[in-house]
């Protein structure tokens, strides 16, 4: 069972001399667990978009004075926003983990004459860097550093 792909998918520059039937994809292409994970991965972009709007609202409030800023921050204490932010954090972690899983093979096989370190070392490095930067930024934002 199939449904249409893009009508010009894999079309040759010079049209073939006989009529071809348009390209198809399997109707249930989205149903494998791999594809569902991929769709979820790409869909998290929408979540970041909304979080971005929240951040813009805060910045806008900041430009409108201390009072407006305080009230905008206060609004964020609503449980809905907390749940949303936690959800966004989970999405980011999910994307990060997936990206890190793919990273060892995506990085060039060699950096000059040096051989890349083995997979587990790269993974350890990536997660350490991620956690390290998160801790550092949290400390700055909480006012513990450069206050």
């Amino acid at each position: 069972m199939s449904r249409p792909a893009h009508p010009h998918a894999m079309a040759p520059k010079t049209p073939g001399k006989t009529r071809t039937a348009p390209p198809q994809i399997p109707a249930s292409w989205w149903s494998t667990s791999r594809m569902r994970a991929y769709l979820a991965f790409d869909a998290t972009g929408f979540v970041y978009l909304l979080v971005g709007f929240l951040a813009i609202r805060l910045v806008w409030a900041l430009g409108s004075g201390q009072g407006a800023y305080d009230s905008a921050l206060g609004a964020l204490e609503n449980p809905i926003y907390i749940v949303w932010n936690v959800f966004a954090l989970l999405c980011v972690i999910g994307v990060g983990v997936r990206f890190f899983r793919l990273f060892p093979k995506a990085q060039p096989a060699r950096l000059g004459p040096a051989k890349p370190p083995p997979g587990p070392v790269i993974h350890a490095g990536l997660y350490l860097a991620w956690i390290g930067i998160t801790v550092l930024l949290s400390a700055i934002l909480a006012g513990g550093l450069f206050a």
Partner: peptide
């Protein structure tokens, strides 16, 4: 999938 179909199970490879 994703290829124009020439005949039965044969697809267009020129693309």
């Amino acid at each position: 999938a994703n290829f124009p179909i020439v005949r039965d199970l044969v697809v267009e490879l020129e693309g």
